[in-house]
């Protein structure tokens, strides 16, 4: 399999570059269950790549493999041109992969601001002693990173809830704060697991707009799991379709939509 090294410009003027992430023949088993069966696909720089499929298809498991949570029994993960050795999730994060979860995973005891500041941990390296003395580099880092966090907060329009404890927020806003935390890390690859699940139409529209803006303004590469086909077709450049752990389709939204196997998989499943 050859990674893309060329780049091109889309109709709406965004640049899609070479391969950022290349998954090669990934197989993941839980005991007897094969959650992912020999799947390969790539994600190119600057694109929005959707992963779709019925419930239990293995989409979340795929993201968990990418972020180092699950170690596949077979296959290779290539990140930015290098084969990735087995890594702990925090090491994957330090390489520039950020994500959100299907079930929100925020720090409930902390304020919105502190949650988003957590996204900047990779940029803060002062030692404990200078932090305790609030001295030199520690104090400087705090202010500098606060500035970039405030830009993310402005961008996602959550200024008003900055100091609110996350536990008090409604569901839709929590999803947005989780996106803010991931964005604050300025990731090279952003993984979003059903960012719009459980939202009303208006919240979905807001979230779609944010995702497009992130991709457009910062050129962030995004892999996105989503059930809402309308949203997927609108947002994504390319789509991977999974069913029972297999890849049954891969291509532009139009190509995927006309693929017979994909149509069958979706017709055979009750779907929201």
């Amino acid at each position: 399999m050859n990674a893309h090294t060329d780049s091109f410009t889309t109709d709406d003027g965004r640049t899609i570059g070479g391969t950022v992430l290349d998954l090669r023949n990934i197989t993941l088993r839980f005991g007897g269950v094969e959650a992912i069966k020999n799947i390969s696909f790539d994600i190119r720089e600057g694109e929005i790549r959707a992963i779709i499929g019925p419930n239990g298809a293995g989409k979340s498991s795929m993201l968990n493999v990418i972020s180092g949570f699950y170690v596949p029994q077979e296959g290779e993960v290539w990140f930015r041109g290098e084969k990735r050795p087995q890594m702990r999730p925090y090491q994957v994060a330090q390489q520039g992969v950020a994500r959100t979860f299907q079930n929100i995973a925020l720090f409930e005891g902390m304020s919105v601001l502190d949650n988003v500041m957590c996204g900047r941990l990779g940029y803060m390296s002062s030692n404990i002693l200078t932090q305790g003395l609030w001295w030199g580099r520690a104090a400087r880092e705090e202010t500098e990173n606060r500035e970039s966090v405030e830009r993310v907060i402005d961008f996602l329009e959550i200024q008003a809830i900055r100091k609110t404890p996350v536990g008090r927020l409604p569901y839709g806003l929590k999803k947005r704060v989780e996106l803010a935390r991931a964005l604050a890390a300025e990731p090279k690859l952003l993984l979003l697991d059903e960012p719009m699940a459980g939202m009303n139409v208006e919240e979905k529209e807001d979230m779609s707009r944010f995702i497009l803006d992130v991709n457009d303004e910062f050129g962030t590469t995004i892999a996105l799991i989503e059930h809402d086909m309308g949203v997927v077709m609108d947002l994504s450049d390319r789509v991977v379709v999974m069913d029972y752990g297999r890849k049954i389709g891969d291509g532009t939204p139009d190509e995927v939509r006309s693929n017979q196997e994909v149509i069958d998989a979706y017709l055979g499943v009750a779907h929201d």
């Binding site: 979860f101 925020l106 609030w134």
Partner: peptide, 25 residues
């Protein structure tokens, strides 16, 4: 100073949800 800064956030992240803490680095 420790608890309002970087290391404090790491501690609280571990306390609130250790899996999510690891995923943010």
């Amino acid at each position: 100073n420790l608890t309002r800064g970087t290391v404090g956030r790491k501690w609280m992240a571990i306390r609130d949800m250790d899996i999510a803490a690891e995923i943010i680095g």
